[in-house]
Deep mutational scan, measured.
Amino acid sequence: ESETFDVELTKNVQGLGITIAGYIGDKKLEPSGIFVKSITKSSAVEHDGRIQIGDQIIAVDGTNLQGFTNQQAVEVLRHTGQTVLLTLMRRG
């Protein structure tokens, strides 16, 4: 069981404050995608409180990250504006 949710964030001096990890899993058993690996102290993400380590980032400002490499996803996140809309999925 999984839930998908949107989080809109405004960057602070730390930026968004997440590091991400790309993961290619076994299609049947484990998900592939871009996941939140860590959250920086005092960052926008930590202050917001809704995003957790292990959440999958589905889209950034409407750009679907399906099939993106870790590096491609980093580039998408790097080129966002001051306000960012993240679409995430959390597995229950």
Results as ranks from 00 to 15, higher is better:
Glu1Ser: 12
Ser2Trp: 10
Glu3Tyr: 15
Glu3Ala: 10
Thr4His: 06
Thr4Lys: 10
Phe5Asp: 02
Asp6Glu: 15
Asp6Tyr: 06
Val7Gly: 03
Val7Gln: 00
Glu8Trp: 07
Thr10His: 13
Thr10Cys: 11
Thr10Asp: 07
Thr10Phe: 07
Asn12Met: 06
Asn12Gly: 14
Asn12Lys: 08
Val13Trp: 11
Gln14Arg: 13
Gln14Asn: 15
Gln14Lys: 10
Gly15Asn: 07
Gly15Thr: 07
Leu16His: 04
Leu16Gln: 04
Gly17Ile: 00
Gly17Val: 03
Gly17Tyr: 00
Ile18Met: 12
Ile18Trp: 04
Thr19Ile: 08
Thr19Cys: 08
Thr19Ala: 08
Ile20Lys: 01
Ile20Tyr: 10
Ala21Trp: 08
Gly22Met: 10
Gly22Val: 09
Gly22Ile: 06
Ile24Ala: 14
Ile24Gly: 15
Asp26Ser: 11
Asp26Thr: 11
Asp26Phe: 09
Lys27Gln: 13
Lys27Arg: 11
Lys27Trp: 06
Lys28Leu: 10
Leu29Met: 15
Leu29Phe: 09
Leu29Asn: 15
Gly33Cys: 04
Ile34Arg: 03
Ile34His: 11
Phe35Asp: 03
Val36Ile: 12
Ser38Gln: 11
Ser38Cys: 09
Thr40Met: 13
Thr40Trp: 07
Lys41Trp: 03
Lys41Asn: 10
Ser42Phe: 12
Ser43Lys: 06
Ser43Thr: 08
Ala44Met: 12
Ala44Arg: 07
Ala44Thr: 10
Val45Met: 06
Val45Lys: 09
Val45Arg: 07
Val45Asp: 07
Glu46Phe: 12
Glu46Met: 08
Glu46Thr: 06
Glu46His: 13
Glu46Pro: 05
Asp48Leu: 05
Asp48Met: 07
Asp48Gln: 07
Gly49Tyr: 04
Gly49Ser: 06
Gly49Asp: 08
Gly49Gln: 06
Arg50Leu: 07
Ile51Gln: 01
Ile51His: 00
Ile51Ser: 02
Ile53Ala: 10
Gly54Tyr: 01
Asp55Trp: 01
Asp55Cys: 01
Gln56Cys: 05
Gln56Lys: 08
Ile57Gly: 04
Ile58Pro: 01
Ala59Cys: 07
Ala59His: 04
Ala59Gly: 11
Val60Ser: 00
Asp61Ile: 01
Asp61Gln: 03
Asp61Trp: 00
Gly62His: 08
Gly62Pro: 01
Asn64Ser: 14
Asn64Tyr: 10
Asn64His: 10
Leu65Cys: 07
Gln66Ala: 14
Gly67Gln: 07
Phe68Asp: 02
Phe68Gln: 07
Phe68Arg: 09
Phe68Leu: 11
Phe68Thr: 07
Thr69Cys: 05
Thr69Leu: 00
Thr69Tyr: 03
Asn70Lys: 15
Asn70Met: 15
Gln72Ile: 03
Gln72Ser: 06
Val74Tyr: 11
Val74Glu: 15
Val74Asp: 14
Glu75Val: 00
Glu75Tyr: 05
Val76Tyr: 10
Val76Asp: 00
Leu77Glu: 00
Arg78Val: 04
Arg78Gly: 11
Arg78Ile: 07
His79Met: 12
His79Thr: 15
His79Lys: 14
Thr80Val: 05
Gly81Trp: 06
Gly81His: 06
Gln82Leu: 05
Gln82Arg: 12
Thr83Gly: 03
Val84Ser: 04
Val84Pro: 02
Leu85Lys: 13
Leu86Met: 09
Leu86Pro: 02
Thr87Ser: 08
Leu88Ser: 02
Leu88Val: 14
Leu88Pro: 01
Leu88Gln: 04
Leu88Ile: 14
Leu88Cys: 12
Leu88Arg: 01
Met89Phe: 11
Met89Cys: 10
Arg90Ser: 01
Arg90Asn: 05
Arg90Pro: 04
Arg91Cys: 09
Arg91Pro: 13
Gly92Met: 11
Gly92Glu: 15
Gly92Lys: 12
